[in-house]
Design a protein around this nucleic acid. Sequence first.
DNA 1: CAGTGAGCGAGCTTCCGCTTGACTT
Length: 777
Amino acid sequence: MHKNLVIVESPAKAKTIEKFLGSDYSVMSSFGHIRDLKEKDFGIDLKNNYKPAYVVPDDKKKLVSDLKKAAKEAEVVWLASDEDREGEAIAWHLFDELKLNQEKTRRIVFHEITKPAILHAIETPRDIDLNLVDAQQARRVLDRIVGFELSPVLWRKIKPSLSAGRVQSVTVRLVVERERDIQNFVAEASYKVTGLFNGIDAQGQPCELQAELKRRFTSKAEANQFLQACVNATFSIDNIEKHPGKKSPAAPFTTSTLQQEASRKLGYSVSQTMRIAQKLYESGKITYMRTDSLNLSDLALGTISHEIKEIAGDKYLHIRKYHTKAKGAQEAHEAIRPTYISEHSITGSAQEQKLYELIWKRTIASQMADAEVERTNITICISGNPELFVATGEVLTFDGFLRVYMESVDDEQEQEQAGLLPALKEKQLLTLKQAVAQERFSQKPPRYTEASLVRKLEELGIGRPSTYAPTISTILNREYVDKREIANEPRTYNVLTLHNGVIKEEVKKEKATIEKGKLSPTDIGIVVNDFLNIHFPSILDYNFTAKVEESFDEVAEGKTEWTKNIDQFYKKFHPNVEKAIATTGKKAGERELGIDPKSGKPVFAKISRFGSVVQIGSATDEEKPKFAALQKDQSLESITLEEALELFKLPMNVGQFEDTDMVVAVGRFGPYIKHGKAFYSLPKGENPLDMTTEHAIEIIEAKRQEDKNKQINHFPEEEIFVLNGRFGAYIACKGSNYKIPKTMTPANLTLDDCKAIMADEANAPKAKPTRKKAGKK
DNA sequence: CAGTGAGCGAGCTTCCGCTTGACTT
């Protein structure tokens, strides 16, 4: 038996450490926390000084008993979880749950997984820091209180199954407020003038020079006046300024910056990035991927130096220490880096290779020299006019880290690359070949991407590296935000061109663009956010997390007891919950649009159990209220009385086809035509209210043709169809569908085969689609 | 993983932070 048992959080870490420690040590993993508050109950005894009720979840029971057994047999147990609040709590839960003995238990910590770091840790053990553990308990209990008291309020006031929490609710708020900023944004127009000049360079060769007017004009008249003044003016170089500039490499990756770069450069979602990184970590290719630390171990810095000298030379080496600016960073690990710097690339899936390459380059570049540039500004003056043109050029004089890696930026528009300028002399005369004044608009604030939202959260100190991806998934799963496509209305703009002494005026149109993959709030997200903002402004405050973190720090330093801090919070928070529940009157987010002229009853827009609806009349009326679902492009905030009344025309009979009525209606998945038993979705963008008999027939016939194309076989006598679906072939019969086993060839199926498949229970159609459960199992 | 197209009742839902595993052919 091993004399020593070391317990760490991650199995991959355990494997590595075991190699460093030799045969006297056995290393096991706790797989994160082994205990938590009860899953279903509140789990906190309010009458007993907030005493938490911890349980070992079912899927951890076997692990805990294995650990217990191993601990019993060992002479010394080393608790080696991370050196941060959560890690300390894991150590304490282990100590408590495994019933460890103080005498034979040691608490050790290390920030990097290198042999010297671990040996040093073993030599300098300490006790469990109970103050830090208490700070974690305070964090845990506060989050449970907020989440489990707020969510039920939403169930009563808005819709069942909704959720709220310290992190997710603020995340939604960011998206909602950005959307409002965009709605309220008023673009300002200005005229940007660019001049194209001809000159003679130092070699006596003719050359061209493009320059921009320093000033922008606010009106077309001013721009026009300026161009007019240019017709007979002379142009000369006022001065040429050269000055050196520098560009520095970005710091090595943390979870958040890795997510951002993988999103920009590789197009991965944050959860995709984490999945791939996890694979790389498990196979020992990279260090731990959930970290907020910018540190690199001395060992790593050594191999990085060696590598840089090898591939680029001494001149390119510049070892740097980076310091984190993120609020609340706990830095229990290293930055994300390749385990073996000498491996420039790896084997694995294409995605793994790409992500590894990105991490390798970023790590190397972070320790390379600045890139050096020479910037040149040429100022051109105009006779009899105070305005100045400026041409800027930039020449790379030393590539430095750029040899390896260039960080991307979010907004790639307006990125004009300045290049080399021709060699010209001061006071030299130039001729203006052409000048263009183009109307430009100020840019509205950009919608968040998953990754830019994570960056914002990190900036605000909200959430942790291990929760960024799950938080994004939560607000998408709850349908508080979505990634709908948004078409940007192309605007027209004016262009004035001065050429050969004549000013030509044109009106041009911007290119139509469609925004994809950006986050927008849904109706439900907006209603929930506004509700929480009214009743619980302090929780939704962007500084709430920062403030409670301060109070946790006090606990960690032993200045206060954690239950006192929680009590202080709860005494203020809970009355607001009671008040919000007691608030009488209509449900949250309900808005009265006006009066229906036909019935004289009021018309409301609100969230119902199944989504956004408009409603004529109240529930208290004798006659039941009438409902209609909003269309996909409509929102609760903007729908008008007229639009709402239109919706009540649906379902609408639009005539007959093959002696059967055609009825247009709007369902959960958009507008459709019902024809007998069959449903036909309307093509994207069509308004169901504009439907005519002729067009409905067109749609039905087109859909039938499409169905024919995917039809593999048909047995009319039994109404059985063999069809090609998006996920492979299936059998359709009387409104139900059946999976075809992979062992069979769909085209060769006989009628009996089909009947056999349909009779097999394993292939039976599923009951009804329910929302994916958030929990496990 | 495949075709959907709201509605009685009772009883369910939910937090944040650590960490990975797995119902089948």
